[in-house]
Design a protein around this nucleic acid. Structure first.
Lengths: 199, 199
DNA sequence: GCGTTACGAGTCTGACCCGTATCGTATTTC
DNA sequence: GAAATACGATACGGGTCAGACTCGTAACGC
C-alpha cells in the first residue's frame, strides 16, 4: 500500500476509505467470478468498484501492487488445534488446507499456481502465507513424537507433505472428482497413521 | 488437428509438414519461456515459428484448438512398472508423477492448473491425460492387496491420492523448497506403507 | 473563504491483438 | 502449361487496455 504509517496531517481532502474497500472488493469479486489474473484490467476493476481509474493509480503503482494487497485479504485465520489428541489435531489441520474464511478464495487459489513459480516475489508471498500453517502442523507432529504417539524416526517434513498433498490436489486441482472431499481429511490422517502394509 | 484421415489426393501444393512442426514447437517454446496461456498470442507464435498467421488459421480454428494439439505433445510415455515388487513399482510410479519426456513440460504444467477448473473441456482433457496413469497405480495397489502385501481394507482411491499428492504439490507448486525432490518418491512410498504411528 | 487534495467520469495516445483478406511466389496434380 | 492450393508477408477494421490527462465537484485545514 502507498500509505505511510505516520500521518503528519496532510492538507486537502483525505482519501476515501470506502474507495479503498470498494477497489479491493471489486478485485476479489472479479477474480472469484472467473477472471484470470492477467485478464483482469484496471478499467474493469474501476468500473466494478464505481471508481475512477485515477483513484486506483493514485493508490497503487499498477496491477501487481493492487493484486498483492488484495490477495493479502484472503488469508484466513489459522486453525487452532485443540491439543488433546494428535490424530484429531491433524484431522483439523488437514481439513483446513485450502479452506479459507473468504469463499472467494477457493476460486482464486488455483489461479495463483502459475504466478507462484514465475516471480520470486510472488513465490515469497505464497511461502509467507503457508509457512505459519506448516509450522502449526510441524508442532503437532513433534508433539506426537514427544508423546510417543508417533514413531521417533519419521521425517517430519515428508510427513507434512504426505498429509498436505492429497488434500491440496483435491481442493485445488480437483484431482479425482470421485473422491469424497468431506471425508478426505480423516481418511488421509488415518491412512498415514496406520500405513497400508499388511501385518 | 484439421487433417482428415483419408487423403483422396487433393490437388495443389500440399501443406508443409515443417510448418506444422514449427508452429507446435513455437507454441511450446513460448509457454516454456514463461508466457501464460492467455498471454500467448497467435501473432507471437507465427513470428516465432517464422510463419504467416494465415498458415496457423488454415490449420486450427483458434488458439484453443492449437493449444490442445500442442499440449498433447507433452504427454510423456507411461512408466512401465516391472511387476516384481509392489513397493518398487510404486516408487517408480510416484517418481514419474509430473516428470515428462519434454523438459518444457515442467514449466508449462503449473499454468494448466487454473485452466483446468474453468472450462469443462479442459478439465476433461486433463482427466484424459492422467487417468491412464491413475489406472496404472490402481492396478499395482490391487495387485498388492491380492498378493497380501497390502492390507485388504484400504481405500484404493484415497491411497492413490496419498501417494500422488505429495509429489504433485512438490513438483508443480514447489510446496516446500527444502524437500529433497530426488529422494521424495521413496520416502513417500515407504511412509505410506509403514505408517507413522508408533508401535 | 481559500488553498489543497481527493473524487467520479471521461478523453486521448499508443500499444497490442484478433481474424480476414490480399499480395506475389512456390509447389503440386492433371 | 493450367488449375489448384499452399506459402510468408503485410494490411485492414475492430477491439481492449495502460496510463496520463482533463473536467467539474467534494471534503478537509486554516
Amino acid at each position: 500500500m502507498t500509505s505511510t504509517a505516520d500521518a503528519p496531517r496532510s492538507p486537502g481532502r483525505p482519501r476515501s476509505i470506502r474507495a479503498d474497500e470498494a477497489i479491493i472488493e471489486a478485485t476479489l469479486d472479479l477474480l472469484a467470478e472467473g477472471s484470470t489474473i492477467e485478464a483482469l484490467s484496471i478499467e474493469a476493476i474501476a468500473t466494478r468498484a464505481g471508481v475512477g481509474k485515477a483513484t486506483i493509480y493514485r493508490r497503487w503503482a499498477g496491477k501487481d501492487a493492487l493484486l498483492l494487497d488484495a490477495l493479502r485479504r484472503l488469508k484466513g485465520v489459522l486453525a487452532q488445534p485443540a491439543g488433546h489428541s494428535v490424530r484429531d489435531d491433524l484431522v483439523l489441520l488437514v481439513g483446513a488446507i485450502g479452506k479459507n474464511v473468504d469463499p472467494r478464495a477457493a476460486k482464486i487459489m488455483p489461479c495463483l499456481a502459475p504466478a507462484v513459480n514465475r516471480s520470486a516475489d510472488q513465490f515469497q508471498l505464497y511461502q509467507n502465507i503457508i509457512s505459519p500453517r506448516r509450522q502449526l502442523m510441524r508442532e503437532v507432529l513433534r508433539r506426537g513424537i514427544d508423546e510417543g504417539v508417533l514413531r521417533a524416526d519419521i521425517d517430519v517434513e515428508v510427513t507434512m507433505a504426505l498429509l498436505t498433498g492429497p488434500m491440496l490436489i483435491q481442493r485445488v486441482l480437483q484431482w479425482n472428482p470421485d473422491l469424497d472431499e468431506q471425508a478426505l481429511p480423516e481418511r488421509v490422517v488415518d491412512a498415514v497413521l496406520e500405513g497400508i502394509r499388511a501385518r
